[in-house]
Structures are given as structure tokens and as C-alpha cells.
Computed example of a mutant assay.
Amino acid sequence: MSQKKIGVCVIGTGRAGMIHARNFAAGIPQATLAAVVDPVPEARQRARQELELETAYADYQDALRDERINAVVVVAPTAYHRDIVVAAAQAGKHILCEKPMAMNVAECDAMLAAVEANRVKLQIGFMRRFDQSFQYARQRVAAGEIGEVVLVKSVTRGPSIPQTWQYNLAKSNGTLAEINSHDIDTLRWFTGSEFAEVYAIAGNFRCSDARAEFPDFYDNVVMTARFRNGMQGCLDGAASARYGYDARTEVVGTHGVLFVGRSQAHDVVVCNKETGMVTPFIETWRTLFIDAYKREDEAFINSILDDSPPAVTGVDGKMAVSVVNAGNQSIRERRPIQL
């Protein structure tokens, strides 16, 4: 493996962006954080100070002209992913793009064409594939320990109120994209197959502020699926669930079942007469998957240095986007959609 240090720029300094930025600033061998990008002055300055960086750009195009930067991490809102990724590829920068990959399949195709034409890497940010518990579970399934897979069920419920732009499905693609892209990828990963048909129902039960201006916004969704290999799938997603961050998967086989994911923040249970048995719930994905994010970032750098395929490819991202689009169509039209 080459000993060259890869200069990285993180585009977007929100919650996920700062996880990646902190990793590259302090914890990823053979990589260094060269700069960050954020159009919001306060966010840009806050990130620059915390990370002790000399360089923080307002415009990603300026970062792409910086010769110290070999790779970018795209953590901007989904509607901007295509333009940023295509421009980065044309500038010869390798790319780690957070999920969802893009707004639709056509945008994904444009991104894939750009990285192929310019011979750069594109990895998609499905960090659960780098979580040790999910990896171990996948190995047990592949080893046949529960027999043939019949059904994969995946749950993700987030506690926080969506940002205003996320209410607009034209900019976010809704909860299926922003929260349940991980579940869609998990279903593909554990079935080893592609979605053949989906049926989704959804509603806005918690975010009353969005109802007047964004009547199609939904904070709760259930989607069932049939896969090309005959396996079945189901996902359950929620925004603004309040009680904590809930991410779990169940795999039902012909002679067994497997559960992966945890909800307890600590392996401690407090018992007393007044409250009974109490244990804290996981508050945020930033805590639950912090190690997975680091391994994801390490894998991205290694794929560049080794000139090897990324662990999670642009095709993986595109297939998840196609399912999000089909799920939203199913919600609108109240019918199953074939892919």
C-alpha cells in the first residue's frame, strides 16, 4: 500500500459532516483533513475553529481547485449531491457521498457516468455495512445458521424534528430517503437480491407544523417488499419519534431467526421501588454508529490507496434511490409498484 497521505475536504459541516471531519482530522491513517466547505458563515467558522483548520471554503468549487485536496466527502442536502459529485469527479477528486445518493435514478446515472469517465472512486455512506454487529449478523446469515432467508425486517426511527427543508419532498424525498435509505440497503444486503415490488403507506402523525405548507410530508412509513429471489422484506420508519434512536433488524429463516441492533445506551439497569427497572435509550445515531463511521472512512481511504473497488458502490446507492422513488410513488398512488 502506498504511504501517501490523502488530502480530504468535507463538504457540509452539519451533524454527519462533522463526524467525518473529526475522523479525518484526528483518526484516519494515511489521510489528513485539508479543508471544509459550508455556505453558512457561522457553521463554517465553528467547524474551522473546532478542527483547528486554516482553510474553510464557502463554495465547494473553490475546494475543487485546491491541489492539496485529493478526495471529498459530500454531506450536503440530497438535492445538491449530483452537481457536487459530478463536479468533483471532473476535477479528479475521489468521492464519499452520504446517503441518499441523489434525488432520482437519472441523477445517479449522471454521477456514475462522471466517476467512470474520470476514473475516480465513489463510495456511498451506508455506514451500517461497517458496523461490527451488522457485519457479524450478515456472516451468520451467509453461513446458513438460520437456514434460507424468508423475511428481512428493518426498523429505523429517529427522535429529532426534521429540518424545514426536509418537509419538502421535492428537496428531500421524505422519510423513506432521509431515514430509511439505511433500511433499504440493509434489506438488499441481507437478501442478496434486488427489490421486485413495493407497497408503502405513510402519514404525518407528529409534525403538525408541516401539514399546511407540505401536505404530502410524512413522518411515519411502513413498506413491504417482494424480492427477485422470492424473499420478503418490510421496513418501518419514523421521524420525530422523540423516545430515542431506534435501529434494529430481524432476519427470519427457514429454521431460525436472527436479531441485530440495540436500543440500550448502556449495559446498566437501575432498579428501585419508585421507577422499577430503568435503562437509558440510545439518543442518537451519532453515538450508536460512531465506530462504524470511522471504519467507513478508513475503507474509503484504503480503496483509493489500494485502487480497489469501494465497499459500498454507486450502484448500491442507485438501487436504494430507485426503491425510495418507487415507495413514494406507492404512497401517492396507493398501490403496489413494480421495479
Rank of each mutant, 00 (worst) to 15 (best):
S2N: 11
V8E: 00
T13I: 04
A16V: 14
A16F: 13
M18Q: 07
A21W: 00
F24H: 02
A26N: 11
G27P: 06
G27F: 07
P29A: 12
P29T: 10
A31Y: 04
D38G: 02
V40A: 15
E42K: 12
A43T: 13
E50Q: 10
A58K: 03
A71F: 01
V72G: 00
V73P: 00
A76Q: 03
H81F: 12
D83K: 09
V85T: 03
A89G: 05
H94C: 03
I95K: 00
M101C: 07
A102L: 02
M103F: 07
C108T: 05
D109L: 09
D109M: 08
M111N: 06
A114I: 02
A114F: 01
N118F: 01
R119I: 08
V120T: 04
K121Q: 07
R128H: 11
F130I: 07
F130C: 03
D131H: 10
Q132N: 12
Q135R: 14
Q135P: 03
Y136I: 15
A137Y: 01
A137T: 05
R138N: 13
V141C: 05
A142Q: 14
E145G: 13
I146N: 08
G147L: 07
E148R: 09
E148P: 09
V149T: 08
L151M: 13
V152R: 00
V152F: 04
K153M: 10
S154H: 06
V155I: 15
P162L: 04
P162V: 04
Q163F: 14
Y167I: 05
L169P: 02
L169N: 12
A170N: 15
K171P: 03
N173Y: 03
A177H: 01
E178R: 07
I179S: 06
I179G: 02
N180T: 14
H182P: 07
H182Q: 12
I184F: 02
I184G: 01
D185K: 03
W189M: 05
F190V: 04
S193C: 13
A196W: 03
Y199V: 11
A202M: 09
F205P: 05
D209T: 15
A210I: 11
R211I: 14
D216A: 15
Y218N: 03
V221H: 02
V222K: 04
M223F: 15
T224L: 14
R228E: 14
M231C: 14
L235C: 08
L235W: 02
S240F: 12
S240I: 11
G244N: 06
D246R: 06
D246K: 05
A247Y: 10
R248Y: 11
R248V: 12
R248P: 06
E250C: 13
V251F: 03
G253A: 10
V257K: 12
F259R: 15
F259V: 09
V260R: 00
V260G: 02
G261D: 04
S263R: 07
A265Q: 06
V268K: 13
V270F: 08
C271H: 15
E274F: 09
P280W: 09
F281C: 12
A292F: 04
A292D: 07
E296L: 07
D297Y: 01
L305F: 11
P309T: 06
A311C: 09
V315F: 15
K318R: 12
A320G: 05
A320R: 00
N325S: 10
A326E: 01
S330E: 06
S330N: 05
S330D: 07
E333W: 10
R335W: 12
P336T: 06
